[in-house]
Simulated scan of single mutants.
Amino acid sequence: MGKIKIGFVGVGGMGQMAHLSNYAVLREECEVVALAEVRPKLAQTVANRYGVPQVFANHEDLLNGAQVDAIVAPQPYRAHYAIIPDILRAGIPVFTEKPLSLTVEKGEQLVRLAEEHRVLHMVGYHKRSDPAMEYARKRIEEWKASGEYGKLQYIRVTMPPGDWIGGADAPLQSDDPYPHSSMESGPEYFSEEQTRELDSFVNYYIHQVNAIRFLLHEPYRITFGDRCGVLLTGESDSGVTVALEMAPYQTTIEWHESLLVCFEKGFVRVDLPPPLARQQAGKVTIMKDNGREPSSYEYPIMPNRSAMRQQAMNFIAAVQGIRPVPCESKEALEDLKIARDYIRLMQQYK
């Protein structure tokens, strides 16, 4: 497959800043041929700005009226259940934002549909596509295979609240009223308060829950959560300890997100930029001290390419059959199970 034709379902703030602006410049790899947006003025404004020839009022009209090879549907995750099944049943590869859904049950339905129709469903954990994360994962796997720096022992992810926009330009807007949309309900076994807590957790920290598994390259389970909601710890299938520091402090004009992967005789650290920072990759620090050679630090240089741009490239390559996607819906379902278990664990303090 050569250059692919892409349709967009939803071109609001994140749809523009994180996704459409990146696909629109990948002219050798793809062409954005259609968009669906329920706000008509915004739809036409965005189509004019990005040169999108076909505009539709909703995803059903796009499915019926446009010829596309793949769809990017950056909807709020609680709206996935009302839109994504139609795309999967149409057999069109689709990209959605994180998380897969709010609940494990709706997530299971989406996974089942993707499998039944044998269609690709990529979930947008963009941190997996950051060049620094890709580089770190490769080095971690090399160390695990060689044993030169001992066993993998500990992974810590820290993400205090901060300036996640990182100076990105504001999206195009209109005076269309914001549309009412049906939103996924919480699980039947959770109270309204627990559903609010679940919604907040998956909105803010599901990226980090997923990133831990990406660097571990194996499943893990929760073992502890502090009553203040600052620290979550767990253990992998092979016995590696993991920790997620959610909000030990906050910043107002910076972004402090880091991932530390510790072996017995060294570590790999990644410091990530704000999620919407333009064409800026993370930074990697590697410390080695195997006792046989002089200890050292490495600071490999990453390309000037953001995780969002690389994520778009990864989705296109997956649709073309060039390489697997960073995270399919089946794996993304595991994040929802972690989130569910965390909320259940926190209930003990109520």
Rank of each mutant, 00 (worst) to 15 (best):
G229W: 07
K144C: 03
S258L: 04
P171A: 04
E60I: 12
F95D: 11
V104D: 09
G186T: 06
V123K: 11
Y220V: 01
H59A: 14
Q208R: 05
E293A: 07
A243Y: 14
L272I: 01
M246N: 11
Q320S: 12
M133K: 01
Q194Y: 10
R323Y: 03
K350V: 01
I212C: 09
F263V: 05
S258W: 08
A47Q: 09
S258Y: 06
M246V: 00
A277T: 02
S236F: 01
E148D: 04
D226H: 08
R227Y: 13
D199E: 06
A281P: 15
G321C: 15
H217L: 08
D86A: 07
I84Q: 00
K138D: 14
Q208W: 09
L88P: 11
G186I: 03
G291L: 00
C228G: 10
H256E: 06
A57F: 02
K288E: 12
T285Q: 09
N64G: 05
S238L: 08
L276C: 07
M308Y: 05
G91Y: 00
P275C: 13
P131K: 05
H59K: 14
Y220N: 11
G150R: 02
I155T: 03
S129T: 10
S296H: 13
W255K: 06
Y23C: 02
G229T: 03
E29Q: 11
K144L: 00
N48C: 07
K106A: 09
R344N: 11
K337S: 09
N22W: 02
R340I: 11
P161W: 13
Q54I: 12
T252P: 00
V32E: 09
K106R: 06
R39D: 04
E218L: 05
R344Y: 14
N304S: 07
A317G: 03
W143G: 01
Q75V: 07
A114F: 00
K151V: 04
A24H: 05
G234H: 02
T158Q: 07
E235F: 00
K151S: 04
E328K: 04
V104Y: 09
N210M: 06
S236C: 07
P40M: 02
F95W: 10
A34W: 13
A317N: 06
A318S: 03
Q153D: 15
A277G: 06
H121R: 06
G229A: 04
Y349F: 01
Q348Y: 13
N304V: 09
G186R: 12
L244P: 15
W255I: 15
L231G: 03
E105K: 14
I6W: 12
M346L: 09
L102W: 10
Q311P: 08
M1S: 10
D130V: 04
Q153W: 12
D175I: 09
